[in-house]
Design a protein around this nucleic acid. Structure first.
Lengths: 129, 129
DNA sequence: ATCCTCATGCGACGGATGTCGCATCTATGT
DNA sequence: ACATAGATGCGACATCCGTCGCATGAGGAT
């Protein structure tokens, strides 16, 4: 699972919400936040494809892009990095941390928690070696 | 207030805990985690001085370094960036998020919350303009 | 006076990322 | 057939950061 940068995350959010988009559509949707030129949006998108964050698919010559890593997976990577690097926590972040976010429904929070625990267990395993 | 990178944070932790240290002392204390050469530690330290994260002071020719941004301030920047960029939260992170961390005492959590609220209010102000 | 050790200043390289422009190709209107 | 608009591939530059090495210099040991 890949950890996106802050800007990459902004693009991902639109893709999660709206599914598959062309570069132009994604740019129009996100330009207000990023304040990027169309070129900048496209280049970032291109790199996200290389990294495996986004899947590209052409329809009759028009490239379209869709997230290839789910919102929950992505939040899990980000949250566990925060817990480990910043808070120096062993256990995963408690669900309460996500409670106020409009990004995740209660059902998704449950899913997230499961993933987080998995990640933190995996980390412990590596430690021992 | 400056947002440190993950590695810079590792160095800062030692400075918060032990106060002023020489480059050598800091390196010996942190090399296990960073797995860096002495040169790498020094260079990072040098850049942290430029950024204003650390204050340098020479005693009879020996350089010593101390954190110039407190633990709580730093956690506040990091936590509010996480809340804003990742969780897309308007309000600051709830105290519950920090509860399990050995880095902060209950008293410090209170201090943190105050700071976080300040930061989130400031952000709203800028938004409106 | 000579040598060794350690600190210091500073340069360098590579990868990630933010940012942008240009040359080319393709479909479409006239 | 030709011009125009938009999409695409790709190159480029700057900055940050992880990482390291070298040359110089100062203080102590012989």
């Amino acid at each position: 699972m890949v950890k996106p940068s802050d800007f990459e995350l902004k693009l991902l959010r639109h893709l999660w919400q709206r599914g598959r988009l062309s570069a132009r559509e994604l740019h129009d949707a996100s330009a207000a936040e990023t304040r990027w030129s169309y070129s900048a949006t496209r280049k970032t998108l291109e790199r996200m494809v290389e990294k495996g964050l986004v899947r590209i698919e052409a329809f009759h010559g028009l490239n379209t892009y869709a997230a290839s890593q789910s919102k929950i997976e992505t939040l899990a990577v980000l949250a566990s990095a925060f817990a480990r690097d910043v808070l120096d926590l062993d256990a995963p972040l408690p669900a309460a941390a996500f409670a106020g976010s409009k990004l995740v429904s209660p059902g998704e929070i449950a899913e997230l928690e499961a993933l987080l625990e998995q990640l933190s267990d995996a980390a412990k395993g590596e430690d021992k070696v």
